[in-house]
Design a binder for these strands. Structure first.
Lengths: 199, 199, 199, 199
DNA sequence: TATGAATGAGTATTCATTCAT
DNA sequence: GATGAATGAATACTCATTCAT
């Protein structure tokens, strides 16, 4: 129960199966019946644990953001801004490789946006992870690791690049082997940091 | 409304409303009833124009790819590799600003991937636009506009960056004003080309 | 146009295709759309020729009875009761072999019974063919070809036997070759006439 | 209502009403809505008991064959081939009088043939009853009850006759009173066994 | 905690038919 | 004679949810 992917209670198993099914078919395709079948309980048993479909979905997103934050946070333990920044990139990569479905849920699925728009608590969770990223970049600029530049816009650039990179990975357009993806990731990071054009 | 995507036949109106609704709720949420209601015809009248829901969706995607390609192609008229590359970026930006829903459909929605997986004709359409992008980058490397580098990996970087940038825009995380987005886009392009770190 | 199975007018072609489709799927499965498609005209064009689905079906049955009667009648030309009886059996067999679908329509399909129940003209057509049969049997008893027996009950026996025989044939439970069926038919007729048990 | 086919569970009631409706309108005309209405439950409640329309129809046929077999089997207890044969005829008659709709379903309806063609288990059920019939006839020939004759062809004759007789009964062409039909049945049986013609 | 029965709204789709052309 | 567009009713089926047990 303390590990982020293992759990034993029926409630947690429902959540896991629901996440899996959601990633396949989206919110509208998410079916209490189908989840129940995968869990091995009756459809109505779910209502013992979640008051309705939306409450269950809400919990899926909440768990996604929580897991993401758990991955990012340890980067704070490094002792320089650059190390904290690079560790954040490493942690984000690990998150995506470990939980591609959560990444997709958080960064890609539009259902999530709708849910964010309507629920303050989720918006707060979302802000935490975005801000973490920005803070690392601000640090780097402040400490001279990056060129003197507009911190918000550099954040945009990096966030866009990494989100895009992961999207390509999720979409199956990058090499499948984890080692290859890791290596390509860091080469891509370096290209972005150093630029690709001649002058 | 004055843009080139407007048309008057019932068939085209259905297509437009279907696209709109698809972007809100995905394939599973796409409802023939609902489309019909928005168009102002009976639910079954749609079948006069599209044989079924999937045929309608297929046409949505096909039109999306077709429109995208129409935006990209004119870049070939420029007379240097770099100009063709920059014009391609410009055209892609215009496409996203003019047709954000088509962008989302093509680059983000997973339903589209399923459809691509099952239909050769769509896969061909998809390949055309991806290859166009790659070809521009290869040219630039070959002609010394970019550093000597692995062309495929530079493609990955650029594709990831722009896809990510547009995703942020679509997701509402960038300034709304078109002028501001355009300016930010080009500053971001330049940062990627030139790098952001000091050495 | 004078032959019972060939015709050229659209009206007749519709009738033929409708009969074919009816035999496959029954009245409820009979579809104006589907008939039209087989004929090669639009669904609504049928209404130029038949005022609605029931009128079309009515004509199918009427044609079926008419054709059956046309097969039976020539038996009257034979010069003895027994010859007329045997010729009637021969003609009925020919009708079934030539038009198995009409046989099925007339003797098996319950939709036909419904239609008969509601339409006097069809009931009259039906009576003509049944009476023809009975009349041949009455003749045979009267002229001593058959044992002195209850004519109505002998009719029942013969009608049951031949209807049943044809049903087995239609149902695919008898040999397929026409020659074999013909031979088996006559052996069966003789067994019925002569009995099968020892005493 | 006091007969052995009545039962009280919703599942069984659905089956009975479905059978009734099927006999009126055939498979295509069989409507889940309509069955539900007759049972007095909502249209969708049926799916709690039968996974879909075909599963329900399948069960109808299966029950029909099962019932028929239950009627025939006790004939085996008689102690001579002739008695077993005559008892089989008696049992078949009882089956038809008790369950005319099942008879029609099994021997007449073409939908059943389609279903048989596609489902091994039903085909097996069907074979059991046909073989039972044949076996009784073979016995009779072997034991000299019938003339030395081709057993398969005698089977055809008898099967055809009785199927045809019952068809006439079902079709309303025979006397309605059960006693009269029983008497006519046995007179017809005797006529078939003994022949009707003079020589 | 869990289940089975049931419901009512909603889904895609087919159909006979009408109407304007 | 024929068509294409459209309609409204009907069909099988799925779904979230409630309730009694």
């Amino acid at each position: 129960m303390t590990s982020e992917s293992t759990s034993n209670s029926t409630k947690d198993i429902i959540l896991e199966r629901a996440l899996e099914q959601y990633m396949e078919v989206g919110y509208k395709g998410l079916s209490m019946r189908n989840i129940a079948q995968k869990v091995g309980i009756s459809a109505t048993a779910i209502y013992r644990h979640y008051s309705n479909k939306e409450a269950l979905f809400h919990q899926i997103i909440k768990t996604g953001f929580g897991t993401y934050t758990k991955y990012l946070m340890p980067a704070l333990e490094a002792d320089t801004a650059e190390k904290r920044f690079r560790q954040t990139l490493e942690n984000a990569l690990n998150f995506v490789l470990d939980h591609p479905k959560y990444f997709e849920l958080i960064f890609v699925k539009s259902d999530t946006k709708d849910e964010l728009a309507n629920h303050d608590d989720l918006r707060k969770d979302s802000k935490i992870s975005f801000d973490f990223y920005s803070a690392r970049i601000h640090e780097c600029i402040k400490e001279g690791v990056f060129k003197e530049d507009h911190p918000g816009e550099v954040s945009v650039l990096l966030l866009a690049s990494f989100t895009g990179f992961f999207s390509l990975y999720i979409g199956g357009l990058l090499p499948r082997s984890e080692d290859e993806v890791r290596a390509l990731y860091w080469r891509t990071v370096n290209r972005i940091l150093n630029g690709i054009s001649i002058t």
